[in-house]
Design a protein around this nucleic acid. Structure first.
Lengths: 206, 206, 206, 206
DNA sequence: CATGAATGAGACTTCATTCAT
DNA sequence: AATGAATGAAGTCTCATTCAT
């Protein structure tokens, strides 16, 4: 039952985050309402509002990363797997691109304005970022096994290559798909971008 | 005199941001203290705290971008100019890497938790991001003139290439120089990284 | 319990008003202190300070008017009832003569300087003023039943007659009993004034 | 010149009051703007904002009362003069009925929410109220001279009679002409009301 | 004399957290 | 275990007043 309540609180918090509430706008009362529980109950499971938020985000990200790792475990060639991973980035972007981009770049938490949230995230961040690094390494290793790349370079280099490849998708979504600065949407289909991103990986490591 | 006061407020705000205060932690009173003026004076020049912060950040970023553009105007080959630009990223990173990375990626504002700050930044963001795009294009054009790259590709492609190259420096600084996730600092000197970053630009566009 | 807290807030507010605090002088903190509750609690029951004040006044006036109407329902002749009503005006005047006079004259709220208080009072005013008009009509109707007056005139005329009669008491109290402008207190007993006021009613309508 | 500036300040303040700004809403800056002078200049002529407002109101009321007294000095019968006085109440009501009614009733200042305004008004009030009493007495004396009334009663009685007569006009304007509580405007012309008011004077003193 | 930029005391209001039920 | 009424610390912003020019 305890696990159930925590889960409900996570869901409530994430539903607010996904609706683009900024962290400091989120009230404990809102979370309680979303989770269909009393405000006081939250404090039975978390020490503070900041704990709730930082752990909720960690919960979300870990789910995402796990998702992507599962894809690698499935049968199929590297090319298929990696393309599927890239394809799966799109729906994640929709949910909360800033947080997502921030984490995928292993950036310090992308939004750290809430008072002590910053420090709390630091701890969670390390854990999350290690998981992401692990995912990246698995990607690289699989491509090695299949001979897509010849040789495993230094950690920084392979990390940077995967990161750039993924950034290709994220940046396109963030900038072009939303027609933000660039005056008109570059006419690429989703599969075009995945193609580009895949090629960048190969170009940088091949 | 008015310009002077605004300037003082900017400096005060930025000094707080540079000390890693999170935006929502910054109090109007703190800014006033740093600027050596009365609290009320701030409201003579800005409509709200959020205005102060968002405009201060815009002021900082515009200064940075201007700085980098000036380097391009100086005499010297593309290689010299671009390496100098990359070299200049290091001190900027020191100041406030999250904000800086966020903007250089043209990401939506990297930290938008403060209530209406989000909306205020949106307007400033567009302006800033246009400036950054302009800088990137200038870089690409100069490399074209000198024949470093043969042909100017689509906007997304050249934007992505410059961005990746710059990210190389930023990520190294953010992750490795601070020994964050990667257990030990990859043994690269600053000039090594600049070399890497330069090569990425050439590799992706050459 | 909720009713209880609101009641406490009303009492606290009215105790301040009765001590001749002007509305804009009253601080939320003062009200809380008087009501023996926390400042924040007030905002659980009211939306703003102005709401507190305007509703407190409405609460007070409605109580007064109800009081007077109850007197009419009691057994006894018109003369007895009406004199009792007039007699009951004295203690009310003591409490807050300006507010009381203002309302009994159906004047727009007598003190409306507090920012949005004005608008809030307008709504309450209409309700209160309707109640007062109702009281006045009941007075007139009872005097008709007993043949004290022969005929019910136009609404303005009977309204004005009752108003004048009541004003007689109020003005005496306001001016003479407090020796304000008139250099020495006119030597009338309370019962003398009631006699005068009663006669004015008869003179104007009889 | 000094007189001129004070005059300008009065005019500025009154223009704000006439536009139904509540006293506590009026800012010193607004007054300065209306008077076309600097904010600081106001403090050359008045000690505080409250002084400005209370003296401005006193200035307005004294003007009104003087006006009415002048009418009595003109040639013509009592009936003509008094009706003219009553007729002149209408435009005054338009300007600021609450203040006007308050003063004509010799009520303590009708709006006393501004902090120390209350005490300041007290001093001015006495002066104004003495002037009003003087006006009332002149009215009564003129009616005596012409034999409209036979005998001068006690001060309270003649004061109350004139007051009621004037109230007749004011209340009609305040309530009926603005269709406030009374559902439809009683169908009286302005001259009808003046007739009523005149008759009340005669009825109560004749 | 006149000004208006600068000031800072002080008020309202919010909201995370507590705790009696 | 669960609640939500109560709390009060703390922050933003206003505006009367001052004073250097």
């Amino acid at each position: 039952m305890e696990k159930n309540k925590k889960e409900m609180i996570y869901q409530g918090t994430l539903s607010l985050i996904e609706e683009n509430y900024n962290f400091s706008q989120i009230k404990v009362g809102d979370i309680a309402k979303r989770a269909n529980i009393g405000k006081g109950t939250i404090y039975e499971y978390f020490d503070s509002k900041d704990e709730v938020i930082s752990q909720s985000i960690a919960y979300m990200i870990k789910g995402w990363v796990q998702n992507l790792e599962n894809i690698l475990e499935e049968n199929g060639s590297f090319q298929q797997s990696y393309r599927k991973i890239l394809r799966n980035l799109f729906p994640m972007m929709k949910k909360k691109h800033q947080i997502f981009m921030g984490f995928m770049m292993l950036s310090k938490s992308s939004d750290t304005s809430v008072d002590s949230l910053h420090q709390l995230m630091e701890k969670n961040n390390e854990d999350i970022q290690r998981k992401i690094l692990h995912l990246y390494e698995k990607i690289v290793d699989k491509s090695l096994e299949e001979g897509i790349i010849k040789e495993k370079p230094e950690v920084f280099d392979w990390y940077f290559a995967v990161n750039s490849s993924i950034m290709c998708v994220l940046i396109y979504e963030d900038q072009f798909a939303n027609q933000r600065v660039f005056s008109r949407k570059a006419a690429y289909s989703q599969e075009d971008i995945i193609e580009k991103a895949y090629n960048i990986f190969v170009k940088l490591l091949g």
